[in-house]
């Protein structure tokens, strides 16, 4: 294990860790978004409920979920630590700054965007994960997961919070996706522009799809 200590100790090791956990979270988003997008079949949530039951009961998915939480925690703790630590590297601040001349605002705001995402995540886990894991909602209790979503998203403030969460996600991913490759040392004139385009596309498509879910449910666009 000693050989992997650098992943938590050195500056480059830490960013490699942020990158690896980030890429794992990206792959999770893809699956999560894909499954949830099944509500758009507009079949009263039939296919979606089936998929949710599979995800909730399959042992392999359940095992990966444990890993997901470990990676998520590492990403959050390491990220918050780095944010705080990096902020202390310049005690005397500039009198005049011109950050937009050399970088995008969201690349400089990953800590803030990540914190917004963390707040969103707490609300989100409370809404769905806790209930689907500790009640019988996905395995055919009184209320299906689909019906539960309908109920949660009837509340306007919840819809607003979710849309805000998705906006933070979009910007976090626009920087994070391509940044993960750079941290791993993958930078090549042929592939880097492609990675950046795929990253931006992924960020926008996933966030828009996610945001569309509470909106569509709130306004009864999906029945």
């Amino acid at each position: 294990m000693k050989i992997f200590g650098f992943l938590f100790q050195s500056s480059i090791g830490k960013k490699i860790m942020m990158s690896l956990t980030g890429l794992f979270l990206i792959s999770f988003l893809l699956v999560h978004c894909g499954v949830n997008a099944m509500i758009f079949f507009n079949d009263g949530g039939e296919i979606f409920n089936e998929a949710a039951e599979f995800m909730g009961t399959n042992w392999l998915i359940r095992t990966i979920e444990v890993g997901l939480f470990v990676f998520l925690l590492i990403h959050i703790i390491q990220g918050l630590y780095l944010w705080n630590d990096n902020a202390k590297k310049r005690k005397e601040k500039y009198g005049k700054t011109a950050g937009n001349a050399n970088s995008t605002w969201y690349s400089r705001s990953m800590g803030l965007l990540g914190t917004l995402l963390l707040l969103f995540l707490i609300i989100h886990l409370r809404h769905f994960w806790v209930i689907s894991r500790f009640t019988d909602v996905v395995t055919g209790g009184e209320q299906t997961l689909y019906e539960m979503m309908k109920e949660v998203f009837a509340e306007p403030w919840v819809v607003a919070a979710y849309v805000l969460g998705c906006i933070s996600l979009a910007y976090h991913l626009m920087h994070g996706f391509q940044s993960a490759f750079q941290s791993l040392g993958i930078n090549h004139p042929l592939y880097t522009p492609l990675i950046q385009q795929i990253g931006n596309g992924f960020a926008i498509v996933v966030s828009v799809l996610f945001a569309a879910m509470p909106v569509a449910m709130h306004f009864n666009i999906v029945q």
Binding site: S11, I12, N102, T104, R108, S179, Q182, L184, G185, N187
Partner: peptide, 28 residues
């Protein structure tokens, strides 16, 4: 010195236009 978060500000301001790819090379 702080840890890199890949904002790219350094390469944009470098008077010798050293590209960000040198950081990727170092990471590798």
């Amino acid at each position: 010195f702080g840890a890199c978060t890949n904002t790219g500000a350094c390469a944009a301001e470098c008077p010798k236009e050293i590209p960000l790819s040198v950081i990727a090379t170092m990471n590798r």
